[in-house]
Computed example of a mutant assay.
Amino acid sequence: MAARKRVANRYYSGPLSDHFDGTLFFNPNGKPPARFSDLLKWQLGGERSKWPTADPSPFRQATPAKRIDGSGLRLTMVGHSSLLIQTAGLNILTDPVWSQRASPLPFAGPKRVNPPGIAFSNLPPIDLVLVSHNHYDHLDLATLKRLKTKHDPLVLTPLGNDAIIDAGVRGMRLSVHDWGERVEIGNDVAVHVEPVHHWSARGTRDRRMALWAGFVVETPGGKVYFAGDTGFHDGINYRLMAGRHGGFRLAILPIGAYEPRWFMAPHHQNPEEAVQGMLLCNAAYAAGCHWGTFRLTNEPIDEPARKLGEALDDQGVPQERFRALRPGEVWDVPAL
């Protein structure tokens, strides 16, 4: 039987590297995404916990300050992996999703069970947007289009995602980078693009054609690590972050979408692993994201926060050091 012809990369072409084979990106010494047969086995296997159709946050929608100057660091939870970081006079959004569904379809796919923790009309001027990868719960073109119209921010994203954004949002200001690159932003702030263990796809024929990444935001008040979406990967990338950056004032780490482990473990860490990651990367404080807004996997809606608390107790880490944030929750992160 003749070998199947490899589909050309529609998003990126560039030199080979330790995580790009000339066509596809990959996790060095890591695992690729599961096969389609494994996806069907999971989807047809049942065992999905029932989520409520609505799960309002105990916090009201926040009205952020216009700016937080100097070394102050304020974090406001929007929902899932969307957070507002305010420091050094800059306003930074991570993986912004204000749409009702994390899906290519407006009438199907994961639907949010709580409204965004900041009404879009109440956003302060947005200077920078960090987009970690192209899955629909992280790269939402409808939201980026709204941000372009109202705020015209700079969007910083890893290789290949610029092709997706540019095709959907005309004229968006884009800064596109590989792992290991550093970008000067201004106000004595710089962003490092860093490796995480994940994958990418917008459909069935573009798997791993765009890169995935985390970000380290270097500020006058300390470093902030946003891991985007990641598996624990034996702690390899957390140790790498500690080695490169010394430590962090704050790490924003995913704690949800991790069951069943046989399917999700390579690419979504659980709360126990998130606590290990916090300790390995030497973060003084951590904020838990990627939970409680979109039902993506099997675990109950409240399990990530509960298991995070248990893991912190098991490791002897004070609960106030790692908070599972809810939409609208505002945290002035203590100084180092």
Rank of each mutant, 00 (worst) to 15 (best):
A2Y: 01
V7T: 14
V7F: 01
S13H: 14
S17I: 07
D18C: 06
F20M: 05
T23C: 12
P28F: 09
F36E: 05
L39A: 12
W42C: 00
G46D: 03
E47H: 14
W51T: 05
W51I: 05
W51G: 09
T53N: 07
D55L: 12
P56L: 01
P58I: 04
Q61M: 03
Q61H: 07
P64T: 07
I68H: 11
S71E: 11
R74T: 13
V78Y: 01
G79S: 02
A102V: 01
L105M: 04
L105H: 14
P115W: 03
I118S: 10
A119C: 09
F120K: 08
L123C: 08
H138A: 15
T143G: 03
P153H: 09
V155R: 07
T157I: 13
T157W: 00
L159R: 14
I165P: 02
V169P: 02
G171P: 05
V193L: 08
T204Y: 03
R205E: 10
R207M: 08
R208T: 05
R208M: 13
A210T: 15
D229F: 05
H233W: 08
I255K: 06
G256M: 07
P260Y: 01
A265C: 02
P266Y: 06
P266M: 08
L280N: 02
A287V: 15
R295E: 13
T297E: 01
I301H: 15
E303Y: 12
L312T: 09
